[in-house]
């Protein structure tokens, strides 16, 4: 038995994975490597990004045809429509982030990682955040042209960031929950939207207030709500993710 323990200690020295000195860097390294791998794979395949961009443009086209000749006057509803487009497109990306791993058989490879598996969550969530924010930054100017409002406003940045962080965190957690179920592509929106709704409402209201040039203080409570959700879903996966992915 002693020899066996020594073998493990030898390995720890070699890999630098002793509990006292290496847990945090190892954890962050795993999250970072998962993120880098997702970005690298996406840069090669463009699978998630192209699906999200095309779908979001189609959603915009639906709005254009649904509101013929009234786009310029639809300023009041534009922020809501903008976040609906972000949300629908984002769900597509969230779904693919774990389904791709599962279908190609690499998800179990990730689960073998010798650190807490929640590191996988943070890497995946950061990847989803990156993909979604890029699509948002492309889509916002198109909305801006169609609905006659300017998105080049610094005040919109915290709303966009807080809303998207919450979206990526909550969505990544529920995508991981759904991936082992039979009706996973249907289940994700069903689980995700009710939890995400307060963030979407807060983001839409904040965007509307900023576009209407109302004072920034008016959106303090909405921003607070988004920060609350972002923090909750930053912590919850660290406690739950191991159980979420294990059979």
């Amino acid at each position: 038995m002693d020899r066996a323990r020594t073998a493990k200690q030898d390995r720890e020295l070699e890999t630098g994975s002793t509990r006292a000195s290496f847990v945090l860097p190892a954890y962050l390294r795993v999250a970072w490597e998962v993120y880098r791998k997702d970005v690298r794979t996406e840069l090669r395949t463009k699978e998630i990004f192209s699906a999200m961009s095309i779908f979001s443009l189609l959603v915009v086209m639906v709005f254009v045809f649904a509101l013929p000749g009234k786009l310029k006057e639809a300023g009041d509803v534009a922020p809501g429509l903008l976040w609906i487009a972000f949300t629908f497109a984002g769900v597509l990306g969230l779904n693919r982030s774990f389904i791709n791993e599962k279908d190609r058989g690499s998800l179990e490879g990730l689960l073998l990682v010798p650190t807490d598996r929640s590191a996988i969550f943070y890497g995946k969530a950061l990847g989803n955040f990156t993909f979604i924010i890029i699509v948002e930054l492309l889509l916002a100017p198109i909305f801006s042209l169609l609905f006659n409002f300017s998105v080049l406003r610094l005040e919109l940045l915290p709303v966009l960031l807080l809303g998207t962080i919450g979206f990526a965190e909550i969505g990544t957690l529920f995508a991981a929950m759904a991936v082992n179920t039979r009706a996973r592509e249907v289940l994700l929106p069903v689980l995700f939207f009710p939890i995400m709704l307060p963030v979407i409402i807060a983001a839409s209201q904040s965007t509307a207030a900023i576009l209407a040039n109302r004072p920034f203080e008016e959106i303090n409570s909405a921003l607070g709500l988004m920060i609350f959700f972002d923090l909750i879903f930053l912590v919850v996966p660290a406690l739950l993710f191991e159980l979420v992915l294990e059979e």
Partner: peptide
């Protein structure tokens, strides 16, 4: 639970490889 996973190597029906890498 986490650290002893480094003591194991596994091959299964799935290769655990990323085909675009």
């Amino acid at each position: 639970r986490a650290s002893i996973r480094s003591l194991i190597g596994i091959i299964s029906h799935l290769t655990y490889l990323y085909e675009d890498l």
